[in-house]
Every structure is written in C-alpha cells, then in structure tokens.
Amino acid sequence: MANQFERWHPLTQFIYFLTVIVIMTVKLNPLITLVTFFGLALLGFLIARGDFLKMSARFFLPASLIAIVINPLFSHEGATILAYFPDGNPFTLESVLYGIASGLMICGMCFLFYSFNTVMTSDRIMYLTGRLFRTLSLIISMTLRFIPEFKRQLDKVKKAHRCLGLKQSRLKDGIDIMNSMIMWSFEKSIDRSDSMRARGYGIRRRTSFHIFTFTVRDIYYIALMLIVSGWYLTMLFTENIYVTFYPLFYYGGNLILSIISYVLYSVLVLLPSIDIILEEIKWKSLQ
C-alpha cells in the first residue's frame, strides 16, 4: 500500500527530511517547532495511521515530556523567577518555555524519524550512499542479505544445540552457539567471495545499478525545498527572524519577512502530506 510520498525519488525524500531537520534544529524557534510538530504528526498519521498513534502515545510523547521536565531543573537562567528550588536555585518562566519548545522539537524529531524509517527503506538508503560510496553501499547490501540468513541458521543451531541436551549454564550455551555461528559465517564467506570474483568483482571500477526514476516533479519539489530552506536560513542569519529565550523570551526581527518565512516553511513541511491527500482526492473523483 504505497502512498504518493513513498513514490518520490529517494533523493527528493532525503532532501525533505534533511531540510526539515536542519531548519528545526538550527535554532530553537517555538513557531517553527509548532509547525513541524503538527505537520509531521499529520504526515506520520497519513503514512501509518494506527501504528503511528500507538508509537506516539507510547514513546514519542513521553520522551518529549522528559525534556520539558528536565530543562527547568537544570537551567536556572532567565529573568522571570517563578519560585525557588530547595537548594536555592531559581525556577524561571524562561526555562519552562525553553523546556516546552525543546520538548516539542524532540517530539517532532521522533515523528520525523518515524516517517523516515517507514519511507526510506534500505534499498533507498543504499541508493543514496551508492551514488557516492559504491563499496560502502555494496557492503551494506551484502550485510542486509546475510542478516536473514544468519537468523535462520541461528534458529537451526539453537534447536540442534537444545537437542544435544547438555547440562550447562545458559551463558555456556550462548558461547557454544555463538562460536558455531561465527565459524559458519566465516566458512560460508569464503565461497561467497569466490562467487563475487567469478562474476568479475574487482576487475574494473564498479557502477551502481538502481531502479528509481527521477521525474520532473522531483525537480520542482527539490527546487522548492532548497529555496525555502535557503530563504529561512538567510532570514535567520540576517536577524530578520529573531528569537531569544534568555534572559527574557523575546520575538523580534522583521514582522512581514518572518510571516513569509513561516508560511513558506509550512508549505515545505506539509508538501508530502498535501501530495498524499491530493492523490486520494483524485482517486476518489476518478471512481
């Protein structure tokens, strides 16, 4: 059940995740964090529905709660003192605000990696690494091929070992099984490298084959994402967008340019979600 986002070219997908994570973490900005939080929550929900909600409730939200609690406990900066800790350190409004913002950011990051792990399957990541680092991508491919085989053999070895019925500790069982697996992996690898050489590995500089197609749409998307992130970073560096938490929480800079930046960023974050939703509407209207 692939959705429209999963049909993007791997490079486009990667640039999406990259631009979002850079803008989100380059500077803690409550508005950006909010947009990211809701935008990625929508994306996660569109991609995986129930599973995403379950994961959020179980792991992502608690993780961000920790951040919200931790910050005021350790950070005592800020001018607006709300109360004092028993050890005499101040409990400030600014540190609470900062904690909430960074908690939201961590949660947004969890959402981002959730989508990333669902969408960027191993062959997509390998395609990306393979463009630049061919040997590396081949090693990853080989490892991913061995892992299921190793697991299958491990299951067999465990059974065979249990059947021997030796009376020894679990640790000793583990050692025997591990030794058996190491021996087996090494021995099989000898044949395997013969098979690679038999098919001409190492004679010439390898190319890296892939089955992805780069479409015009991908060019538009990438251009859009790069322009938006470039715009935002420029605004940030020229201090047209300006946020500080300490000593006082302060929002400043050029109001109009800031608003334009936030709107543009919202479009960037929502881009895959919009694509998925438009596609669903189209299908429904076609039927």
Binding site: S141, M142, S195, M196, F209
Partner: peptide, 24 residues
C-alpha cells in the same frame, strides 16, 4: 545459498554487470 551476494533480486541480477562497469 552462498552464491547470492546481495539482498534484492534485481540487485543480484545486476551484480555482474555492475562489476563490468556498465551504465544504468
């Protein structure tokens, strides 16, 4: 089992040709 080097069928088919440096 030991002769299959990569994790995907399409990649395995392409393996030898990649080694020969052919284009996509």
């Amino acid at each position: 089992d030991t002769q299959i080097v990569t994790d995907k069928v399409w990649h395995e088919l392409a393996f030898g040709l990649e080694n020969m440096g052919l284009g996509n």
